[in-house]
Each structure stands twice: as structure tokens, then as C-alpha cells.
């Protein structure tokens, strides 16, 4: 044993110095226990500090939501509310069109999620499990298309919906009416497909074994049957992942919805609703109510995420590691 370790050491004298230096430092200057303790402190110190920075702004919002207007108007303002005003959360529903906003958010987000899941799963299945002319071209396009940022599409898409033929009083040339702008379709159609979703579902569909599909074909299953009865049940975790990603993204979407619903308040979602309160946010008497409204807009997504977060993490890593 001693011979062996001696030999190893001798054989390694040509290695760079730092190896030995750090080793010596670890054992003599810092006894093992002290060093371990330092690493532990560093590790959990950083994590805790970051966690506090993550949580504090939310706490500030929740504390703010429980103040009375008088407490906010005092100089200096009272930070800790003497009696928590829980009814501010009820007022967010009675004094603001919160219920209508939430309904719109659910309708729009739910529709986009359902449609994107359908289009992504079908396309992902085709791209993963068939060999056909043009496949590589489409695949490359799906990857490149993800780079095009959304701001590029805001202007032309707005007017494509505006001049949509035979919709909203338009003639066949798209003139005379408002097109699709005053309908839920304006909020849903532009997001019917996401290139990221197609790519992600293709990654999941790759895991479906070809032998299973071939066996079903021999048994007389139709091509759609292969997709519906075999592939889809196997990639159910992938569907949950994509569904969660899409739901969170579109529940939180604000730029497009704000652009389209400026003239159609009855279509406003909760994020646009609280954004349009902006001018009133600066009136200190209303701030508690508005902080309560913010909390209402945030909490459903946080709860959903906390329940399904393992799927979210999986989606993140699938999206970044290309197959």
C-alpha cells in the first residue's frame, strides 16, 4: 500500500504545482472541519441572501395591500398596518372589474394552451416519427424561427387582423370594418402555433419507440390512431410541461393584449387591466387596493407553478439541450 502511493506520487511529479499547493493548504492551514464549515456558510449564505431578495418585494406588496389609505397618506407612511385590511382583497373584486378580467384571462390563456398543444403535438409527431421530403427544411425553419423576436410581428400582425377578409364587417378586400380586432380570435390566433412548442414536442415524440408504431400499423391502426392512441399517451408528461409553459407565458402576456384591446375593454385580461390602472397607481389613496389587485393577478400562476414545477424544470432542460 505504502509502496503504491509512493509510486503514484513519484510518477506525478511532472504535474503542475497547484495540485500539491492546494492540497497542502486544505490540510494544514484549514483543518478539514473548519474548511467544510466555511463552504457550508458560503453556500447557504448566498442562497439565503438571494432568497430574501426574491421574496422581499412580494412581501412589500402583500403588506401594502393590507394598509388603510390613512396609513399610506401619513408622513412618513405607516409601514406595518395596525389592523390588516383583508377586505382590500374583496374590494379588488367589487371596486374593479376583476372578475371580468380573470374570466378573459382564463378564456384566452386556456384557448391558446389547448390550440398550441394540439398543433405542437401533431407537428412534433410528424417531424419526429416520419421520413418525408422537406422534413429537414421544416425542422431547420422551426429552429431558426425561434430567433425572430416578437416585437417584429406586432405591427404587421395588428394590421393583418385588422384587414382580415369577411370578418368584423370587412369585405373580401378587408375594407370597411374592424376585422378580427374586436374578438377573442385577435388574442388567440397569433399564438395558435409556437415554434418552441413544435420543437419541444418533437423532442418528446422522439422518445416514442418506432417498433410500437410499426406493430400497431400491422394490426391495422390508422396513422391518426397511431398519434392519438399510442404517441399521445406516451408523451403525456411532455404535454403537461408544454401546457404549463404556455399557460404561464400567456397568462402573463401584456404587450400584444394591450395593443389589441385598447379599443375593446370588454376583452381585457387581468394583466392589461392592472396596467391600465397605471395613472391611478400614483394616487396614494388607491395604492392598497391596487397592491391587492396585483396580488390577485399573481397568485393563481404561483399556485399552479408550485403544484407542477417538476414539469417546468423538465421543459427548461429539454429546450436547452438539443437532440
Amino acid at each position: 500500500m505504502r509502496m503504491l502511493s509512493h509510486e503514484t506520487k513519484a510518477a506525478r511529479t511532472d504535474l503542475p504545482k497547484p495540485t500539491d499547493a492546494t492540497n497542502a493548504g486544505a490540510t494544514t492551514a484549514h483543518p478539514r472541519g473548519v474548511r467544510k464549515w466555511a463552504v457550508w456558510t458560503f453556500k447557504y449564505g448566498i442562497l439565503s441572501l438571494g432568497a430574501v431578495i426574491m421574496i422581499l418585494p412580494f412581501a412589500d406588496m402583500l403588506i401594502g395591500a393590507l394598509r388603510t389609505p390613512a396609513e399610506r397618506l401619513a408622513r412618513p407612511p405607516v409601514y406595518w398596518p395596525t389592523i390588516p385590511q383583508w377586505h382590500n382583497f374583496i374590494r379588488a373584486f367589487t371596486d374593479l372589474p376583476m372578475l371580468a378580467w380573470l374570466t378573459n384571462s382564463v378564456i384566452v390563456t386556456g384557448s391558446i394552451t389547448a390550440v398550441q398543444l394540439a398543433t405542437s403535438a401533431l407537428a412534433g409527431f410528424a417531424l419526429a416519427k416520419y421520413r418525408f421530403r422537406g422534413r429537414n427544411l421544416i425542422l431547420r425553419f422551426v429552429l431558426v424561427a425561434q430567433i425572430f423576436p416578437f416585437f417584429l410581428f406586432i405591427i404587421p400582425m395588428f394590421f393583418i387582423l385588422r384587414y382580415w377578409p369577411f370578418a368584423g364587417g370587412n369585405d373580401w378586400l378587408g375594407q370597411g370594418g374592424t376585422g378580427l380586432l374586436d374578438s377573442y380570435l385577435a388574442l388567440i390566433l397569433p399564438f395558435a402555433v409556437s415554434w418552441y412548442g413544435v420543437f419541444l414536442m418533437r423532442q418528446f415524440m422522439m422518445t416514442v419507440p418506432d417498433e410500437l408504431l410499426d406493430a400497431a400499423r400491422i394490426d391495422g391502426a390508422s396513422e391518426f390512431g397511431l398519434f392519438w392512441r399510442i404517441a399521445l399517451p406516451l408523451v403525456r408528461p411532455g404535454m403537461v410541461t408544454l401546457g404549463l409553459l404556455v399557460w404561464i407565458y400567456h397568462w402573463n402576456e401584456v404587450i400584444w393584449t394591450m395593443t389589441v384591446t385598447r379599443a375593446a375593454p370588454e376583452l381585457q385580461t387581468v394583466t392589461v387591466g392592472i396596467q391600465l390602472l397605471r395613472s391611478e397607481f400614483f394616487d396614494e389613496r388607491n395604492q392598497s387596493l391596487q397592491q391587492a389587485a396585483l396580488a390577485v393577478s399573481v397568485i393563481p400562476v404561483i399556485v399552479l407553478f408550485l403544484c407542477l414545477q417538476r414539469f417546468y424544470v423538465r421543459g427548461l432542460s429539454m429546450g436547452s439541450l438539443k437532440g
Binding site: 432568497a51 426574491m54 402573463n252 394583466t271 393577478s297 399573481v298 414545477q309
Partner: peptide, 12 residues
């Protein structure tokens, strides 16, 4: 904890 901001809408 670290995921809270990323699931929060940008207006909030």
C-alpha cells in the same frame, strides 16, 4: 423561491 419572479406577470 427563486422561481417566484419568473412566473409573475411583468405588470405586477
Amino acid at each position: 423561491i427563486y422561481s417566484l419572479p419568473m412566473v409573475t406577470n411583468v405588470v405586477a
